[in-house]
Design a protein around this nucleic acid. Sequence first.
DNA 1: CAAAATTAATCAATCGTTTGATTAAATTCC
DNA 2: GGAATTTAATCAAACGATTGATTAATTTTG
Lengths: 208, 208
Amino acid sequence: MKTEKIDKRQAIIEAAEKLFCETGYEGTSTRQIAKESGANMAMINYYFGSKEGVFVEIMNERIAGFASQLKIINEDKISSLEKLHRVIEGYVNRILSNPAFHKMMHRELSLTQRPEMYDKIKDAMSHNMLLIDRIITDGIDDGSFNQVDVRMVIATIMGTITNIVIAPNKVMPCSNFDLNNPKDKKIIKERAIAHLKDLTTVYLTTKK
Amino acid sequence: MKTEKIDKRQAIIEAAEKLFCETGYEGTSTRQIAKESGANMAMINYYFGSKEGVFVEIMNERIAGFASQLKIINEDKISSLEKLHRVIEGYVNRILSNPAFHKMMHRELSLTQRPEMYDKIKDAMSHNMLLIDRIITDGIDDGSFNQVDVRMVIATIMGTITNIVIAPNKVMPCSNFDLNNPKDKKIIKERAIAHLKDLTTVYLTTKK
DNA sequence: CAAAATTAATCAATCGTTTGATTAAATTCC
DNA sequence: GGAATTTAATCAAACGATTGATTAATTTTG
């Protein structure tokens, strides 16, 4: 007999993530999750306690994945600019590897309810922010970067990437591109990285 | 006698917008809207046909407000850079004048459901995008701007502003600032405008 | 067989919407 | 101008449907 070792627990997580991304947390019912995952409705509460439990589990898994992915960028031989470029590469790759989740994250972030989630996301984001902040500030201090509004530069770097992911396909990145198409995604990734590297290089290091 | 001319219709719109911004469309019930507005529940359907009708009405009003606010930036005497700077000023002012609504707009934009709303928002956004696109492309053509990835530059301009509005107060713009405080908002507005002007000037016009 | 996993059936609560009745103002009629 | 009529606005109550959650029984597993 084909044992069909399908982990129902995992199936629920995957179905829920897909649905949460597509229709939002409130817009997704437990019955939809059950149907999509092929599991019985009661299994959701059996494994995760509640609908919110599924959501929290998804966020925890993803955020843990993010954390494990981060590399310490602190080789002495590397310039501030090179450090920044590596962070940009990592950030773009990370976010564009799962645009749907990043969309959902931002959606949840913009809701004042569910403070537990808010804090989780905030903490995950602030790590990146502090990393960039330190690199730019160091660069300014040692004279290799221009005096700039550091927080605004960070908003530009993060905002650019988020905009590419969130803005509608037909409007933003390029009329004929689709982030769901792996080939297109690769191209957009490279364009985003090239653009942000160029932008930061010119803006931070050009002598006036 | 104080006639207390309270327009219930308007009260519903205002209450609904507030609640939609705070807790999202799905997360807001018609009973909440009724309570918050002081109107009877039935009034929502009486005036707007449905809950979604209220939402559509809110979007239409706001988007109409945006459209009427736009100025034609086409004086011959003005350089491409100056045109771009005026668009940036207008865009920042518009969005930061109502951050909550802009948050909600982005939230709804990231949901694939409600295609009517999606298209409405998309159209409203694409107008700005085309405006910026034309200005930058013209600047490149007449040699006053560097050859850049136009779409990515647009993503940077729009993304920066969106990021300032959406990212959590305690993380992003500046630790002690609050967009709900009019004084802080003014400062952030000016910083955002100054930053984007400086960024675009350096990036688009610096000779390599 | 005992524990874990899964099921169908059901729960109270809440959802968006509709109903029929009531009020007050505006309009028409004589 | 005053009575009769129509209209718009508002209300409490209830509608059927759906929500997230739970139960108790059943099946699978080790």
